[in-house]
Simulated scan of single mutants.
Amino acid sequence: MVAMTAAVGARPARAAPSAARLRAWGRGAVGAVILVAIILQAGAAPFVRGLAAVSVPSVVAALLLTAAATAAAAWRWRILAGRLGLALTWPQAVSAYYRSQFLNTVLPGGVVGDVHRAVSHGRSVSQVAQASRAVVAERTAGQVVQIGLAVMVLVALGMSAYAPAVGIVLLAVVVACAGVVVAAAVSTRARDVVHRELDAVRTAFGTVGTVAKVVVASLVVVAGHVATFVVACLAVGVDAPPQRLAAVALIAVLAASIPFNIGGWGPREGAAAWAFTSAGLGAATGLAASTAFGVLAMIAVAPGAAVAAASAFHRRRATRAAAVEESS
C-alpha cells in the first residue's frame, strides 16, 4: 500500500497509473522469479494436482464466499470514503471492487486494480487525491486487521512454529514506518506530506463507530478468503484438524497480500509450502492447495472482467461522442 500511496497521492491523475504500472511490473518480476524457483524445486506435479482438484462444488463455494468478502470490502470502502467526504453508492462500490480484484489477479504486483479503483473514483468525483486516500486507508485497515487476527489465532492455537512468518510481515511494516519517520525528519516537504496524510487518517477513522464497522468488515473479508483456502485444501484432499487448516490458510492468505507477486502467485505458494511442511502436511500438498486456491480466486472474481469490459465500452463510447461533438 505504500507503493500505491506514492502512485496516486500527489501525482497528476494521468501520470499516476503509468508510474504504478512500472512499479507493478517490477514487483511482478520478483513474484515470477519466486514462482519459477518453487517450480524448479518442487516440480510441476503439485501444481497439476491443484488444477485437477478444482470442481464445480468448490467453484460455487468460492463464488459465494468471494461475493460475501467483496460486499464487506465494498462496505468498508464506502464507510471511509464517506468519512472523507466522497460520494460512493453501493452499486459503484461493489462493481468497482470486483473490477479491482480482477485486475489485481490478472496483472502483476497485486495493486494495479486498487490504483485504478482510486483514480477512477477520484475522477468521477473530481477528487483524485482524496479518493486515493480512501482506498489506501481501506486496504491498509484490512491488512492491519488481517495481521492482528493471524497473530491472535496462531497464539491461541499455540502454533509458535508460524511466528516467524508473521514476524517477517510485522518487520516489513516496521521498516516502512521507520522510512516514513526518517523521511519526515530530514525533509520539510515530506514532513508536511506526513502531517497532511495523518490528518486524513484521523478524519477517516475519527469515531469509535467507524473503527468498529471497519474491523467487522475486515474480519468478514479475511474469513471469506481463509474459508476459500480451506475449500481448496478440502478439494485437494487435505486431511487435517480444522484448527490446523485455519492456521495454514491464514499464513497463505497473509502472504498473498505481499505486493511482490504475479497475479497473486509467488509468495503465496512459498508460504503455503513452508506452512504445510511445518504443520506436518508436506510442501507438495501446500503447493497443490495454493494452486487450487489461486484458480478458485481467479474464477471467483470473474465478474470483475465484465465490469472492466463495460467500463472500457462506456469510455470508448464517450470518447467517440466527444469527437463527434468537436467535429460538428
Rank of each mutant, 00 (worst) to 15 (best):
V2N: 14
A3Q: 15
M4P: 02
V8F: 09
A15H: 13
S18W: 15
L35D: 02
Q41L: 15
A42W: 03
A44N: 02
L51G: 13
A52K: 14
S55E: 08
V59T: 10
A61C: 05
L63V: 11
L63H: 06
T89N: 07
P91F: 04
Q92M: 12
Q92G: 12
R99W: 09
P108Q: 04
P108T: 06
G109W: 00
G110M: 08
G113W: 05
R123Y: 08
V125G: 00
V128H: 05
V128C: 02
A141K: 01
V151P: 03
V155F: 12
C177L: 14
V180P: 03
R191G: 11
V193I: 14
D199K: 13
A200I: 05
T203L: 03
F205V: 04
V211L: 04
K213Q: 15
V221C: 00
A223C: 05
H225M: 10
H225Y: 13
A227I: 06
V230Q: 04
A232T: 02
P241I: 01
V248G: 01
L254V: 07
I258H: 01
F260T: 12
N261D: 10
A275V: 03
A275K: 03
A275L: 07
F276S: 03
G280E: 06
L287G: 01
V301W: 01
V301M: 07
A309C: 12
S311G: 11
A321H: 09
E326Y: 10
S328G: 15
